[in-house]
Amino acid sequence: MTIRKTTAMIAAITMLAVGACSKKAPETLPPAPAGTDAGSDSGIGNAVIPGSQQDFIANVSSDRIYFDFDQYNVDAEDQATLRSQAEWLQRNPNVRVTLEGHADERGTRDYNLALGERRANAAKNYLASLGIDPSRIQVISYGKERPAELGSNEAAWAKNRRAVTVVIGQ
């Protein structure tokens, strides 16, 4: 057998072996985690659990605020959004949240991580000024690593310069 034929046989066997190992979708899905709505009628229909992320989204004006290029100041529109969030947090005093800071793709990774943190802290400080206990608010920055909108244009960048409030539990 020549080297060329041996190499071709090894390649064919490898492709067959890899193809045979590919995962197939299960016929039935595992049950949903406890405390979640798996879509079945459990007597409460599609009721939103008080204090959950779904409750938060349903009852605040928005879960996010947006920033201008290279800025982290909370403007009047952001203040209105954060007042809405603060009212919800006051009605749910046991809920804790994480404020996620984000930046657009321009700038270095380190610079955008720092900018995202300043944005999240600006939102946290405003919520604290409205009477929300700062110990209920964690801050994390993702910089440019988790864009909300893909694209290299002003419309995409504007949606990526944000701070997002996420309910993490009670």
Results as ranks from 00 to 15, higher is better:
Gly51Leu: 08
Ala123Cys: 00
Glu105Ser: 15
Ala122Trp: 04
Val97Pro: 02
Leu130Cys: 08
Ala114Cys: 01
Ile140Pro: 02
Asp104Leu: 08
Gln85Tyr: 02
Gln85Ser: 03
Leu150Ser: 12
Glu149Thr: 12
Trp88Ile: 02
Asn112Ile: 00
Ala156Gly: 10
Gln54Cys: 00
Leu150Ile: 09
Glu117Ile: 13
Arg119Leu: 03
Pro50His: 07
Tyr111Met: 08
Ala158Thr: 08
Arg96Lys: 15
Pro50Asn: 07
Asn92Gln: 10
Arg119Ile: 01
Asp63Phe: 09
Leu99Asn: 00
Ile132Ala: 05
Arg96Gly: 03
Asp75Leu: 00
Tyr142Gln: 07
Pro147Ser: 02
Asp68Asn: 14
Val139Pro: 05
Arg83Cys: 04
Tyr126Asn: 09
Ala86Asp: 01
Arg106His: 12
Gln53Ile: 01
Ser135Asp: 12
Pro147Trp: 02
Ser52Glu: 05
Ala148Leu: 12
Asn153His: 12
Ala47Cys: 06
Arg118Ser: 13
Ala114Met: 10
Pro50Arg: 07
Arg161Asp: 08
Asn160Asp: 10
Phe56Arg: 06
Arg119Ser: 06
Arg118Thr: 08
Gly131Pro: 02
Asn153Cys: 05
Ser152His: 15
Ser61Glu: 12
Lys124Phe: 02
His102Trp: 01
Lys124Leu: 03
Asp75Pro: 00
Thr81Ala: 10
Gln85Ala: 03
Lys144Met: 10
Leu89Lys: 00
Lys124Trp: 09
Gly107Thr: 02
Gly131Cys: 08
Ala114His: 04
Arg91Ile: 00
Ser152Trp: 15
Ala148Phe: 13
Ser135Val: 12
Ala47Glu: 10
Tyr111Pro: 03
Glu105Arg: 15
Arg106Ile: 13
Gly116Asn: 02
Ala128Arg: 08
Ile57Gln: 09
Arg118Asp: 13
Phe69Gly: 00
Leu115Ser: 05
Thr81Tyr: 06
Asn92Val: 04
Ile132Tyr: 05
Gly143Gln: 03
His102Ser: 14
Leu127Glu: 07
Ala120Leu: 04
Arg109Trp: 11
Ala158Leu: 03
Leu115Ile: 00
Pro147Gly: 09
Gly107Leu: 06
Arg91Lys: 15
Gly131Thr: 04
Leu130Val: 03
Leu115Ala: 00
